[in-house]
Design a protein around this nucleic acid. Structure first.
Ligand SMILES: [Mn+2]
Ligand SMILES: [Mn+2]
Ligand SMILES: [Mn+2]
Ligand SMILES: [Mn+2]
Lengths: 216, 216
DNA sequence: ACAGTTTATAAGGTATACCTTATAATCCAC
DNA sequence: GTGGATTATAAGGTATACCTTATAAACTGT
């Protein structure tokens, strides 16, 4: 197995899983990568042989300790590069995410640590993802799930799909933004309406599911 | 052909060739990579189909214009990352070279330009390699070729082999160092002796061939 | 409890980029 | 101009990581 492939799989498992013990169905991994389920199954078997994941037939994969460590290290590198690209080189945040997706595989531990120090030991990526690997705050709720009248602060955008990031940026909904839900459209197909610092914006339901908030 | 492989070959051709029109023998490429000549031959044929090189049977390869452009762009990225790793993250210069060998493939044009701006548009890598692609100064001579009594300034270390770089660093022979040749040992197996700012050092003949200087 | 869906496994295929062994063509130095 | 070294080419092989098609097994809801 090539190192980069291993990392991509472990990173994906970490990002997509709901919690550490609930196995992630291979179908979800396949869909995430756009690979056939058969290919993902093959790769997962190799990952299990390598001691990175545990495979639970008919249920999915969980990360072993080694797998979790590797995934966390990857995510940390990813987010540090994102900060560098975004803060130091002023790259748009969707491009920062994309480029970091390559750089993340090419920085040994020593470089990562020095990069973190240079950046001032940041705590989150430009999209709100934690850099010091810690549990996601249990207080986070997605924008979609908030009711009319709620006031909340954006903590994070996840998942970090480039086109989604571009739309979110246009609405100025970056982490830190304070927001009040002023209206809500009908059910599944609906959108959420909200006002922020005077301005108003309409967030499509699908996008609202990727915006995570903390009620204030 | 995968982009990274193409880049590695073009970069190697550029670094190893003596001048633009003299073809580089495949044997030298094979030796550089540690690949079999047959494999290199196969790859060179694909590179020719791709329009990156021209192959002159029994003589070697030359870069096409597209190939030269790609090689120069790669070298530029390589050297900018070296400067970043060395200046900003304080990595030892041999490690900077090694890590840059990976990062160089993962930075799109836009990132490269911003990186260069952030670094203050540097003109050379930590080992003296030019960043703005220009002809190497014709005044450069290698340390090995200088006679006793000559006074010169180090301009560059090439090739950038990590262990060579470590030895050179220990002798404090980085680009900029001023040096006077005070003695020279016998022929091929010999070493060159020199004094620098009071200190004295003995440079093995093989290493002296990689230290390029400008007579002052 | 069984039908229908989901998941697993078997079998064979592709492309990339490396390998070895063997033979053929060419070059070069004497 | 020929013989020994270099270089080219042919043929077949490996590993990785993806693919499709087809069949089998297990799960799940009614
Ligand atoms: Mn990646
Ligand atoms: Mn991010
Ligand atoms: Mn490289
Ligand atoms: Mn360099």
């Amino acid at each position: 197995m090539r190192q980069e492939r291993v990392e991509e799989y472990l990173g994906a498992v970490y990002r997509l899983r709901s919690d550490a013990d609930t196995p992630l169905p291979l179908a979800q991994l396949a869909e995430y990568f756009g690979f056939s389920p058969v290919s993902v199954h093959e790769m997962v078997q190799k990952l299990e042989e390598g001691g990175w994941v545990q495979y639970h037939p008919y249920r999915g994969v969980t990360l072993t300790e080694a797998g979790t460590d590797a995934a966390l290290a990857l995510l940390r590198r990813h987010r540090l590069w994102e900060r560098f690209l975004s803060d130091v080189l002023s790259l748009p945040w969707d491009e920062a995410h994309t480029v970091a997706g390559d750089l993340e595989h090419a920085a040994p531990e020593a470089v990562t640590e020095r990069l973190s120090a240079f950046l001032g030991e940041p705590e989150a990526c430009p999209h709100g993802g934690p850099i010091a690997p810690q549990a996601t705050s249990a207080l986070e709720q997605c924008l979609r799930s908030l009711g009319v009248g709620a006031e909340a602060r954006v903590t994070r955008i996840a998942p970090e799909a480039p086109d989604l990031l571009r739309r979110i940026a246009q609405l100025s909904l970056m982490p830190g933004s304070l927001v009040k839900i002023v209206a809500q459209t009908a059910e599944a197909t609906g959108v959420a309406l909200l006002a922020e610092g005077g301005r108003q914006a309409v967030v499509p339901a699908a996008d609202a599911r990727a915006v995570w908030m903390e009620i204030v």
